[in-house]
Design a protein around this nucleic acid. Structure first.
Lengths: 224, 224, 224, 224
DNA sequence: AATGAATGAGGCTTCATTCAT
DNA sequence: TATGAATGAAGCCTCATTCAT
């Protein structure tokens, strides 16, 4: 997903002046756009700066994208598809052992939240959601709903299997996802230092509380 | 900078409505600005529309606020102070009976999240956070940190009192707050229909899970 | 011409709240306007600042002057009349002894050039001459032409009387006035330190050169 | 900041006129700006009119100059450099025969004063001097001081050489320059008809008076 | 494919001036 | 007489977008 850096080797091709394959350009431009959009916001970002960051002239950008808005849409597009797939796949894989799956997911998600690159598009979507509700909706349906839905299904499976008692699976799912969202918001949008710096420990603590509750007479199962 | 407010005496003259209402104007303008900022985003919002919404000429706004950015800052200012106080007060009130306090808080918070007016400024802050990090930071410190901190303290108090077992109080706090944030994001930013339409039931379910966990052998205490 | 300061004595009148006599206001306003016009230029000067300097509200100025331009015109008016008279009178007085008159005039003029207050309106006129040619013309006719004319007449009288040889009186007049203009321009417009700090000596030297020339075989008459 | 000028080669293509003439544009714009500034004054001049006069869109001007003020500064810059050089060179050339040099200079200067194009920047500088003292200072130091300094040096050289008697060289220099300044002010700023229409005769008269004085017993050397 | 040059549209802000009190 | 409040008109500057090369 990060733009492939040009190889530094001097092979046959590099004898003739390197000609950038057109295929790479759009991605480079999108990356530049993403950076600028995040730093300044969609409206305040200037096409000129995006172009410069992509090492292109202002007019050059228009060879690949029709407008500034098209950049935004393409940006969301580019991220939506693979993520949706991955998320669904991951979720489905865990129906056999819901508890193990939860642990896995929590750690995985915490890692994701820690990676600024992966958080970039979500941040962008959130910042422009008021101005372009359709984009926000698309993202909600394709990414967020799928993620929460998958999580809910996972817990529902656990209930069906008898691993969990009968609770509102949606509520439980949100108790797992919520803290992650909060962490993401806190770090990447509000600019705070990590609330939970020790990812593994925090994930374990969260799962422990989720499984065993806060009751003093609970007999918490230690994280393996 | 705002002109001195007219005296509040109730003499004969004040029966007829003032045509010039200096004292109320700043608030009216801020409300108008909030609406426009939310609908279009900070940059895309036009001072002219804000003025019109406040039933003022474009130049009139500048009698009360120095610039567009000043509007944004005043907007955050206006909400930060009372909220911070309220949050702290509320939290402190609950140290005697942490469990009851949790229930109270959860319901209260769900109500807050459901109110678009109360969510307006948070939405705004989130949308401009990338462009004005200092504003985001201010909001984070004055509002979010205080809220999470209070919640953490509440749970820590419960642990000390023996009502809760010894867990990471911060993690537990975030498991309470996270789902609310998620709900807020979902509804007010991503434009989704409520995930948890039955506020009371959801709050109860959330507290139940938080207290008793998901283990099938838990004996959940019914919500009173 | 400078605004009379309010007397600090506590006489009968000051028992009743001091009421500024309307008659003084216009002058105070004009003074304020002059200051602002000089500091910022006519266009960049703000009515609000002028009002503030005159200790009046913005609207208050309009009770006395119809517009910003009216201020400018009134300003020139106020200075044109007395100066024109004075200059003419002075000039006429010197026809008896042209050489003595020249000496007198030169010293007098150097004193004038040194006084920033007296130079204020000329500066103003020069700065707005391009924008309001009629004002410049008025000033030229009423002040400058009269001054140079008077000087020329004085020298012509000297020629007629046999005190001077037959030269172009206009040229000679300008050789007297020119250095003064140059000094004024240098000091008050270009902001330079005085070219001729020792006014008396300079005036004497100037007259000496004017009378006796630069020829090495001249026998300069010492300044008395 | 101005874009690189197109290469000056004279190939087939350059027969057809360039529609985009980046290289010439800055100068065209400056000329337009000068005209507008002089006609209306710096503040009252509109960028739109300047652009129109330069046959450019409003925005086009900003491709070459950052702001209105930048135009003003560039304008002064453009004139300051060559003038300073020229003035110094001219002055130095005359040390051999100071009297001849004076005659030459006087005629040359009168010619300069008669040319509205050459007077444009001085006029502009004078009109904005109050508002932008740094620009005025720059002009004073680079142009006026140099000119007067050169003239003074010239006369001092004449004194050293024995061509002139020992007078204050600065005073004498100002008696030469002053009338020119006065003429310039009169014509180009106050809008008067030439005081000295016959340039040659006037210059001669001025030099005559300067050399021989007004004494009736002087034996003026005729202008050759 | 790529760009330097150019522009139309539009936004923020300022300010002289007016008006109701 | 005096002013706080308000506004219409205008100007500077920016920027997404286009065009000719």
């Amino acid at each position: 997903m990060p733009p492939k850096s040009r190889p530094a080797t001097l092979d046959v091709e590099s004898v003739t002046r390197w000609r950038r394959r057109a295929g790479e350009r759009p991605d480079e431009i999108l990356n530049a756009a993403l950076d600028e959009f995040l730093a300044k916001g969609f409206d305040a970002a200037r096409m000129e700066d995006i172009a410069a960051r992509a090492k292109l002239s202002k007019a050059g950008v228009y060879l690949y994208f029709d407008s500034k808005l098209a950049l935004l849409q393409a940006l969301v597009d580019r991220e939506v598809k693979p993520i949706a797939h991955r998320a669904t796949a991951l979720m489905r894989a865990g129906h056999a052992d819901p508890i193990a799956a939860l642990r896995l997911l929590a750690t995985f998600a915490r890692g994701t939240v820690a990676d600024p690159r992966l958080m970039a598009v979500p941040r962008l979507v959130i910042s422009i959601a008021g101005r372009f509700p359709e984009i926000a909706e698309r993202y909600r349906l394709e990414v967020v709903e799928r993620a929460i839905g998958g999580l809910t299904a996972l817990i529902a499976a656990g209930i069906a299997k008898g691993d969990f008692r009968a609770v509102d699976a949606g509520v439980a799912a949100r108790m797992l996802a919520g803290p992650l969202i909060l962490e993401a918001l806190w770090r990447h949008i509000l600019g705070g230092a990590p609330l939970a710096p020790d990812i593994a420990a925090t994930a374990a603590a969260q799962i422990d509380i989720l499984l065993n509750g806060l009751r003093p007479d609970a007999r918490p199962e230690p994280t393996p």
